[in-house]
Design a protein around this nucleic acid. Structure first.
Lengths: 342, 342
DNA sequence: ATGAAAGCGCTAACAT
DNA sequence: ATGTTAGCGCTTTCAT
């Protein structure tokens, strides 16, 4: 009923505590024969090291660095706030978290920052990735210096990052398509898409999923080429208003990036009897208002708080050297409508 | 940079370690004056006790008991499975979890089991509550014996339970209404409801939320009195098939309990050109199939794995005597459609 | 290559 | 009412 300790292992293997410790921590200076005796004892006893005791003894501290894009994007600012709050809580678990900001979409600046990280001062990094080769290279160098790396919200496929914490954006797009298709059922027409920029990986993935579903499941709707709003509300408003005015057959709008205030404004300008169903991303003050006044039908959301917690947990697990690296629960795409707002 | 320890507190307060310990753990035998000197030192230093070290020292173990309803309900069986898996993982954190099953809907049996729990053997209990006075009394007795109690999935309002881990069922019902109302837009008619039993609190709450939204937001639809299917697929199938045949104006179905196989079967029997939108609860093998073949439009789901993890965390926090008891992230109502199945 | 002993922050006898 | 001391399970010098 009481767990075996290294004392038990040492006794059964007929060695001292230090030798057991050497084996456990893969340190050298143990003969192969001794090592295997110890390993046998560990196996026989079903020994599992007490991580809390180990950390206490070595005075372990986890020094993490979160790297976020700077700028006015309200989702990113919420994320920053969540990091700050979780950082306070993490202190109790001997985890100190520092936040760094880099200009949005600036791969060079991000890579420079990554390169400047000193393994003497940082054990692990969580970054909102910009999808570029310089960043991949910088990540590889970080890993080479022994720093753990995970991506957050925006992934960096093909890099040496050890994990990703965020939503599956293709699936998010599929979900949007599934909802909007159903909302527009019986009103065949055209559906407009708004994105930040097709160069942003997340948006490209969302579009992919969205189009997949609409083409196969709701062929009565046709899609018009996406508006690139650059996450700027004025630009979004102007371009979308123009399209809506030019084409009275537009029955639905899917906005996959930021700048949702612009979408709401463009819709508000329509004649009241025209019904356009709308699905957007990220629950903010503005999208919330738009849900409540009926101009948006659904908002897809990712819980940034859970993402931060997930990244912290994943980094700590990586640093504890657990293998296989235990997966954290995947982040779900949440769906909000007027009637289930939190 | 290095956290203060009880040594620092003792030094600053000019007392011994034991006195600091007595103050920290609210033990008696400390003069008020001494106590306040210690408390001052703690405040000045910003001392926070190292829980890991404390637990190591006292050899703390958390002995938890999960109480689930017996029977064929596939959600509950999934829950049981999750408890088993989390129990294995929790062992590493010195948490031993025992699972007990009681006949479903049998308040007396549940109360008896609660009464039989020995504080010498159990520190905390998570129970799927049956809503009855005997259970409330048994919970009060548990608390009086010093056992921590939280409810899981199904709450027990008005009892002395210290927390609830599960979804907000009124909100779940509202979500269902919001979805189904939109899915049926343009096809005014009648909407049928299927529940397990109106005596089950969850189902009553879901109905409440559902009707709220339909009445206010989708008044073009009228609601017909719910079918009580007692979570039995055959009963559900027969009664629903009858209603659907009798009333060709039924355009939507909301099933808020178990027995979804019966719903799917009743729908399959309809003429292929008749379109009925369907929203049900709990993602299982069967509801999943029905989503894929197009007979269900959406499934509302609660993540039982998260619920189990939340209950474990909440109980441990309660037993650690944190105050105020830190809330765990609320469990979200997840929405699945054909195109975002996990 | 292996072992002995001190100590991480805290608790729990056992003194005084 | 307060202090001393020996651990909890593990790591880490420093010996041998």
């Amino acid at each position: 009923m009481t767990r075996p300790t290294i004392h038990d292992v040492a006794r059964v293997a007929g060695v001292s505590l230090s030798t057991v410790d050497r084996v456990l921590n893969d340190r050298e200076g143990v003969r192969d024969k001794t090592r295997s005796r110890v390993l046998d004892a560990i196996g026989d006893l079903g020994f599992e090291r007490n991580l809390a005791a180990a950390n206490l003894s070595r005075g372990r501290r986890y020094r993490l660095c979160f790297i976020l894009p700077d700028g006015q994007n309200s989702f990113m600012r919420a994320l920053e706030q969540d990091v700050a709050e979780e950082a306070a809580a993490a202190l109790r678990d001997f985890t100190v978290i520092e936040t760094r900001k880099v200009p949005a979409f600036d791969a060079g600046a991000l890579a420079d920052l990554l390169r400047s990280l000193d393994p003497e001062a940082v054990d692990g990094v969580a970054l909102v990735a910009t999808d570029a080769t310089v960043v991949r290279i910088a990540v590889r160098e970080l890993r080479a210096r022994g720093i753990a790396v995970v991506t957050l919200v925006s992934d960096l496929p093909g890099s040496e990052k050890q994990g990703f914490v965020g939503i599956d954006n293709v699936q998010a797009g599929r979900t949007a398509g599934s909802l909007l298709g159903r909302f527009c059922r019986g009103r065949a027409g055209r559906i407009a898409m708004v994105c930040g920029s097709m160069l942003v990986r997340d948006h490209a993935e969302r579009r992919l999923g969205f189009e997949q579903v609409l083409r196969t499941e709701f062929p009565e709707q046709s899609l018009i080429a996406p508006i690139e709003g650059l996450d700027d509300k004025d630009r979004v408003r102007n371009q979308l208003a123009e399209k809506l005015a030019a084409d009275p057959g537009i029955v639905g709008v899917y906005s996959m990036g930021a700048g949702n205030r612009g979408v709401a404004e463009a819709l508000a300008a329509l004649q009241p009897e025209r019904h356009v169903s709308v699905v957007v991303h990220e629950l903010t003050r503005y999208s919330r208002e738009a849900l409540l006044d009926g101009s948006f039908d659904a908002v897809l959301h990712q819980n940034s708080r859970s993402e931060v917690q997930g990244a912290i947990q994943l980094l700590r697990n990586l640093l504890d050297g657990q293998n296989p690296p235990p997966q954290v629960e995947p982040i779900r795409v949440e769906i909000y409508m007027r009637d289930n707002l939190p």
